[in-house]
Design a protein around this nucleic acid. Structure first.
Lengths: 188, 188
DNA sequence: ACAGTGATTGCAGAACCTGTAATCACTGTG
DNA sequence: CACAGTGATTACAGGTTCTGCAATCACTGT
């Protein structure tokens, strides 16, 4: 496997993020990204389905991890707690990449196209959690609604994590946000 | 305002839905849609921001209506009930268009691109509800989480409505789905 | 008549994305 | 050491989406 430099995807991702922050998402062409990474436009499309996808690298594996963790949670744990625990279990990975997450968020916030893709990813996360809860024996309205609420809490926790001037961990914010969810639900 | 035939948007929408069901979304070009409507491709883009948007016609006004209704709800009503009532208030409109909604759903289900746009629209709905709840004095974690749960319930209710062999009204399914949400939340 | 308005059109072009076949660097085998 | 095999990269051609700009067109009001 030594034939080419290697780390092609990573190089493309770095080139893309750099160019997006330099001159903006829309003013950057795929050809430019590829050239900066020492590759061609066609090669970019061999690694990413489209231009947006370069900003959502490990999302699919993250979703798979969450689904697995929810499925493997102890049987006596409540559905919501199982999802919460699954999120927290994978939160270290993000804590080590806070700065990259910041840059990514700034790019995403500036472009409707990209936020659209983000919503799609969160929807996929929600559907994966729904499926995992169903295999745990949770019947259907509860599975869907619990998954949706969990994803909403996750999204809110991530936002708080990035905005926190105290640099608290994502796990901490997940904990408090799911507590907020409990409190809010009691008011319904 | 009599200069041109009129109803341009509606003709484009009808042409688009017909062609999408005939030969599929991806195998239909914008030029073909415009030609069937007796117009040109350029005119299509004068009315819709992009090819997908032709399938989401009244979404923006629906969102505006919901926001307004949530804002105008009686003060003693709980946040969740206010949103529920706002949805139900606008549900007749959908009941009169059940068949069109069916066709639309089949097209949407077959294409990731389009479902992505749908998630984006639901996200916009959620943000509008969040804003409306905030103006009602609901503080932030509760506003966001309540809005997200409401949208999830709305989505589930719409799915049940379309799948219901008994042809129950959307209002009915909204009612029962929000009851499910109450029940589920109590289990958290 | 005649200027004004607003929708539609024509045209040019950039960027996105895909299909297909060729090339290239390296690997394993006889 | 030839040599076929493998997998990533590349070249190229082309369709489609979407935009900017200027012109045209049907109708309106004076």
């Amino acid at each position: 496997m030594g034939r080419w430099p290697g780390g092609t995807q990573e190089r493309l991702q770095k080139a893309a993020i750099d160019l997006f922050t330099e001159r903006g998402y829309e003013r950057t062409t795929v050809a430019e990204i590829a050239t900066r990474a020492g590759l061609t436009e066609r090669t970019f499309y061999n690694h990413f389905a489209d231009k947006r996808e370069v900003l959502f690298p490990e999302q699919d594996s993250f979703i798979a991890k969450v689904r697995e963790a929810v499925g493997a949670a102890p049987a006596e744990q409540s559905p919501l707690d199982a999802v919460n625990a699954a999120f927290i279990a994978g939160s270290d990975w993000f804590d080590q990449r806070r700065e990259a997450a910041q840059r990514r968020r700034h790019i995403l916030d500036a472009h409707t196209d990209l936020r659209e893709r983000e919503w799609a990813k969160l929807a996929a996360l929600g559907e994966a959690i729904t499926a995992a809860l169903r295999t745990r024996g949770i019947p259907d309205p509860a599975a869907t609604l619990t998954a949706a609420a969990s994803v909403a809490a996750y999204r809110l926790a991530a936002a708080r994590w990035l905005a926190d001037p105290q640099y608290g961990t994502l796990g901490h914010h997940l904990h408090t946000t799911f507590e907020d969810l409990h409190r809010t639900a009691r008011s319904w």
